[in-house]
Amino acid sequence: AEIMKKTDFDKVASEYTKIGTISTTGEMSPLDAREDLIKKADEKGADVVVLTSGQTENKIHGTADIYKKK
């Protein structure tokens, strides 16, 4: 799966169907969080990951919607 910015995804959204939401939390780098989200998306058969939230304090927390091409 590839990560797309919401603004970029909005241009092609009609080509995809939302298949779920994924999240990651833990003591990790932003890059590790990104890789974890991609891994989870791949496991669910998603083609595209669109980040919906991200937070960093002591731990990273990120959520994303996942989509499959129609």
Rank of each mutant, 00 (worst) to 15 (best):
A1T: 06
A1R: 02
A1N: 01
A1Y: 00
A1G: 04
A1E: 01
A1D: 00
A1P: 09
E2V: 15
E2F: 09
E2P: 03
E2L: 14
I3E: 03
I3N: 00
I3K: 01
I3A: 03
I3G: 00
I3M: 07
I3D: 00
M4V: 05
M4Y: 05
M4E: 02
M4T: 01
K5M: 14
K5S: 15
K5L: 14
K5T: 15
K5V: 12
K5W: 14
K6V: 06
K6C: 07
K6N: 06
K6M: 09
K6D: 07
K6W: 11
T7A: 15
D8F: 05
D8G: 02
D8Q: 05
D8W: 04
D8S: 03
F9P: 00
F9M: 02
F9E: 01
F9V: 00
D10M: 12
D10Q: 11
D10R: 06
K11C: 10
K11M: 09
K11G: 04
K11W: 05
K11S: 06
V12C: 07
V12S: 03
V12K: 05
A13P: 00
A13N: 05
S14A: 11
S14G: 12
S14E: 10
S14Q: 08
S14H: 15
S14C: 15
S14W: 13
E15T: 05
E15K: 10
E15R: 09
E15V: 04
E15W: 13
Y16R: 01
Y16E: 02
Y16F: 07
T17G: 03
T17Q: 08
T17S: 10
K18A: 06
I19V: 07
I19P: 04
I19S: 02
I19L: 08
I19Y: 01
I19D: 02
G20D: 04
G20H: 02
G20C: 07
T21C: 11
I22Y: 01
I22H: 00
I22T: 01
I22M: 02
S23T: 11
S23A: 11
S23Y: 12
S23N: 09
S23F: 10
T24Y: 12
T24N: 05
T24V: 12
T24L: 10
T25D: 14
T25G: 11
T25I: 10
G26Y: 09
G26N: 10
G26L: 13
G26A: 10
G26M: 11
G26H: 13
G26D: 11
G26T: 14
G26C: 14
E27K: 13
E27T: 12
E27F: 15
E27S: 13
E27P: 13
M28V: 07
M28P: 05
M28N: 07
M28E: 07
M28Q: 08
S29M: 08
S29R: 05
S29T: 09
S29E: 08
P30A: 13
P30Q: 09
P30M: 13
P30R: 09
L31R: 14
L31P: 09
D32G: 08
D32C: 12
D32V: 07
D32W: 07
D32H: 09
A33Y: 08
A33G: 06
A33P: 05
A33N: 05
A33R: 09
A33I: 11
A33L: 10
R34I: 15
R34D: 06
R34F: 12
E35L: 13
E35I: 14
E35N: 13
E35M: 14
E35F: 09
D36K: 06
D36H: 10
D36C: 12
D36S: 08
D36F: 11
L37I: 05
L37Q: 00
L37S: 01
L37A: 01
I38P: 00
I38L: 14
I38G: 02
I38R: 09
I38Y: 03
I38T: 03
K39R: 14
K39Q: 09
K39I: 06
K39T: 06
K39Y: 05
K40Q: 14
K40R: 09
K40I: 11
K40V: 04
K40G: 01
K40T: 04
A41K: 01
A41F: 01
A41R: 00
A41V: 00
A41W: 00
A41S: 03
D42F: 11
D42Q: 14
D42P: 01
D42C: 14
E43T: 06
E43P: 00
E43D: 07
K44D: 03
K44H: 12
K44A: 15
K44S: 08
G45W: 04
G45H: 07
G45I: 02
G45A: 04
G45L: 04
A46L: 01
A46W: 00
A46T: 00
A46Y: 01
A46E: 00
A46S: 03
A46H: 01
A46Q: 00
A46G: 04
A46D: 02
A46I: 02
D47A: 05
D47M: 04
D47L: 04
D47T: 07
D47Q: 06
V48Y: 02
V48Q: 01
V48S: 02
V48F: 01
V49Y: 01
V49K: 00
V49E: 01
V49C: 04
V49L: 14
V49D: 01
V50L: 04
V50A: 00
V50M: 02
L51K: 03
L51T: 03
L51M: 13
L51C: 13
T52G: 12
T52S: 11
T52Y: 06
T52W: 10
T52N: 11
T52I: 11
T52F: 06
S53W: 13
S53F: 14
S53L: 14
S53M: 13
S53V: 10
G54V: 11
G54D: 14
G54T: 12
G54Q: 11
G54S: 12
Q55D: 15
Q55K: 08
Q55C: 14
T56E: 12
T56K: 08
T56L: 11
T56P: 11
T56R: 08
T56Y: 10
T56D: 14
E57C: 12
E57M: 12
E57D: 12
N58T: 12
N58P: 10
N58V: 11
K59T: 14
K59F: 15
K59C: 14
K59I: 14
K59S: 15
K59Q: 11
K59W: 15
I60W: 14
I60H: 11
I60V: 12
I60D: 09
I60A: 13
I60R: 08
I60T: 12
I60F: 15
H61F: 14
H61I: 15
H61E: 12
H61Y: 14
H61L: 14
H61M: 14
H61S: 11
G62D: 08
G62W: 15
G62L: 15
G62Y: 15
G62N: 12
T63P: 07
T63R: 08
T63M: 10
T63G: 04
A64Y: 14
A64M: 06
A64T: 01
A64P: 01
A64K: 02
A64G: 04
D65V: 05
D65K: 02
D65H: 04
D65A: 03
D65Y: 04
D65L: 03
I66Y: 02
I66D: 03
I66P: 02
I66V: 05
Y67G: 03
Y67A: 04
Y67L: 03
Y67W: 02
Y67E: 04
K68H: 05
K68Y: 05
K68T: 05
K69D: 04
K69H: 10
K69V: 04
K69Q: 04
K69A: 05
K69P: 04
K69C: 08
K69S: 05
K70H: 07
K70D: 05
K70Y: 05
